[in-house]
Design a protein around this nucleic acid. Structure first.
Lengths: 157, 157
DNA sequence: AAATATTAATTGCATATGCAACTAATTTCC
DNA sequence: GGAAATTAGTTGCATATGCAATTAATATTT
């Protein structure tokens, strides 16, 4: 049997990215939970976008937040039940549903902000700014490399 | 109402990491799917670990792959149905179930290898080695920063 | 040896996610 | 104006994931 070990993989950033993201997700969930915030990362991102940009169509929200529109539909379902957002039909185009943040949603997001700031401080502790810049540069390049038409691309976006 | 925009967030690596990981996941799934490989990233990682290290307890597998053991239980359920892995009781300690890769699992993993290699090439295209090294260094530092006892840590690991 | 604690895995309940197929509304094209 | 194509959102089906609580087996303690 051919023994193919794919050792190269371990020297690329791929596994590091994966592990770091996982750890960050744990870290974020834990910080939110331990402060009694019943908020997921996905929900937080949506609250942030709506908070900054105001009401928008589900499609746009899906595009901006890199989600499949079906995923977004259900995320909004959940958040609607929690009274973080509202859905309303756009009278100019009845296919469109506008999602907007509620007062309760704003309140929740505002509670999340200081926690996020803490997280940022902890995460970037001991990392030099120039190295952060390099990392962001690399991530951008990777995005450019893969975010292409070669992908049977996100028609849903 | 206090308008808190959390602009700092956009200047940190956090959003970049999130977006890049999402894009990488799309890219990987797409590459696998377009070549007819019915294999998810999670399954691939497990096949790789089992392929390199041989049979092991679910607990160890969960620890190594950064998963909750419940997640692992169900991942193994799925992979068992696909005949990629087998589960067997450890006779020395009947609490333990040993997971091992099957011939079919090995075959699947071997089919995935060239695709992974392609992906690696595309992903890292145009990125200088020193910048890759810096990025990995930063990711390691972040891991160190957050992977701490402060976390009501993964007891399940 | 019996009671207690720990450990490995599972199950209930919940979230998030994507693709394919579908419906309803609007736009485009003849 | 009406047929055809497109667009926005939803639903079916599937995967992956985590926490809390449970079961079964082993280890520890008294």
């Amino acid at each position: 049997m051919e023994e193919n070990k794919l050792p190269e993989l371990d020297r690329t950033i791929l596994p590091w990215l994966g592990r770091t993201m996982k750890a960050l997700d744990y870290f974020l969930n834990d910080h939110f939970a331990s402060r009694g915030l019943k908020l997921t990362k996905a929900q937080m991102i949506l609250l942030k976008v709506l908070s900054n940009r105001g009401a928008m169509a589900q499609n746009s929200l899906a595009f901006i937040t890199d989600r499949d529109k079906t995923s977004l539909t259900r995320l909004i379902n959940t958040m609607e039940k929690k009274n973080f957002v509202t859905r309303s039909v756009d009278e100019n185009d009845k296919r469109i549903k506008l999602v907007d943040i509620t007062e309760e949603g704003k309140k929740m997001f505002n509670s999340a902000i200081p926690i996020l700031q803490e997280i940022i401080v902890v995460v970037q502790d001991g990392v030099e700014q120039k190295d952060l810049d390099t990392t962001i540069k690399v991530l951008k390049q990777i995005g450019k490399n893969i975010n292409v038409d070669e992908l049977t691309a996100p028609l849903n976006k």
